[in-house]
């Protein structure tokens, strides 16, 4: 039998990789992709907990996370398109309107 902690460990590592991707990439699409990666790592741990605790709530949460991820992807990509129309570049350094 696989212990629960293995799943959690896997989930943590994948999450960390997602965070690294988010921080180091220049391409906005890649940043988005990293976010999806993080969401997936969380999903793994939720599903694992659901299984080991014999509770359905974890799976339901995964379901909602996927819903939100879909919405978020649609909106985020739309923002990227709008940005691209404004300034034909999708690198993170170029998008710095918040710079103080």
């Amino acid at each position: 039998m696989v212990p629960l902690s293995w799943y959690i460990l896997l989930s943590t590592v994948v999450f960390g990789i997602g965070v690294i991707g988010f921080i180091i990439r220049r391409n906005l699409i890649m940043i988005f992709l990293s976010i999806e990666l993080m969401l997936n790592s969380v999903n793994i741990s939720l599903a694992a907990f659901s299984h080991y605790l014999q509770s359905m709530t974890g799976q339901i949460l995964v379901f909602f996370v996927i819903t939100v991820a879909a919405a978020e992807a649609a909106i985020g990509l739309a923002i990227i398109i709008a940005l691209y129309r404004h300034k034909p570049s999708i690198t993170a350094e170029e998008v710095n309107l918040l710079k103080g």
Binding site: V19, F22, I23, I24, R25, L28, I31, A92, E93, V95, N96, L97, L98, K99, G100
Partner: peptide
């Protein structure tokens, strides 16, 4: 403090 506000998404993440 404005120097913290780089406007760079990644630094906020960091």
């Amino acid at each position: 403090f404005r120097r913290i506000q780089t406007g760079l998404l990644s630094s906020y993440g960091l």
